[in-house]
């Protein structure tokens, strides 16, 4: 039991640690940000987790195109699904944070619009899947689209925000939070937070994959 599930325990311990340390440890005092600087421990890991789980998704899409095993297609689609969960949480928390620091729920910023467009691109992935009935065909077309979607994600989240002016920290000439964290106390919470959330999201994703496989098996047996 413990032998197989140790990594789930690590995820829970890490995230619990970041909740406690994230509220209690000292943070640098910054104008405008004030205590909201602690959102770094909760909002940012959502995006890290999304990038990782969507990479798992595109990885299995490529695997599907290589070997055409339907299992890869199940894994790819469920990973994309889980990625949308954390992505949505990232968007909502970011919007809330923006309201109290930038003064608006949404600003026409390259990073924000890029994140929204990325979500829409992945929504289209599910619409595309839903529109094709034949299994092999759906898996193949979805896999090709998924590769395109991940490339667009890199462009919209990583490249374009760095080439334009952006309010978002770490983009367009705006310093990231590492410049405030002079004595590295924030890193002490931030890195475990990122790792913890990534592993927790992987756990949720494996639950989804197992349910989907069960569903398939029972449907085939009937």
């Amino acid at each position: 039991m413990i032998k197989k599930n140790w990594w789930k325990i690590i995820a829970v311990v890490l995230v619990l640690y970041t909740i406690i340390a994230g509220f209690l440890f000292k943070v640098p005092a910054q104008p405008i940000l004030h205590e909201t600087i602690r959102n770094l421990y909760f909002h940012v890991p959502m995006w890290f987790a999304m990038m990782v789980i969507l990479f798992v998704s595109v990885w299995h899409s490529i695997k599907y195109l290589n070997k055409s095993t339907i299992e890869s297609d199940i894994v790819a689609s469920q990973a994309a699904h889980t990625g949308m969960l954390v992505g949505a949480l990232g968007l909502i928390t970011g919007s809330f944070w923006a309201k109290y620091t930038w003064g608006a729920w949404w600003v026409a910023d390259t990073k924000l619009n890029g994140a929204a467009i990325t979500m829409l691109i992945y929504m289209a992935y599910f619409v595309l899947r839903g529109s094709i009935d034949e299994e092999q065909k759906r898996a193949r077309i979805a896999a090709v689209y998924n590769i395109l979607a991940y490339v667009m994600l890199i462009v919209f989240l990583m490249i374009l925000p760095r080439m334009n002016d952006s309010l978002h920290p770490g983009n367009g000439g705006n310093p990231g939070f590492n410049s405030y964290d002079l004595d590295s106390t924030m890193r002490l919470v931030f890195y475990p937070a990122v790792l913890g959330w990534i592993v927790l999201v992987v756990w949720i994703f494996t639950l989804r994959v197992r349910t989907e496989k069960l569903k398939r098996k029972t449907l085939l047996n009937e």
């Binding site: 599930n5 789930k8 756990w203 949720i204 639950l207 197992r210 349910t211 069960l214 098996k217 029972t218 047996n221």
Partner: peptide, 15 residues
């Protein structure tokens, strides 16, 4: 999540 995990494990064994 743990409850879901166990439930799925049980179903996997049954199948």
């Amino acid at each position: 999540l743990i409850m879901l995990d166990r439930k799925i494990s049980k179903l996997e064994k049954e199948i």
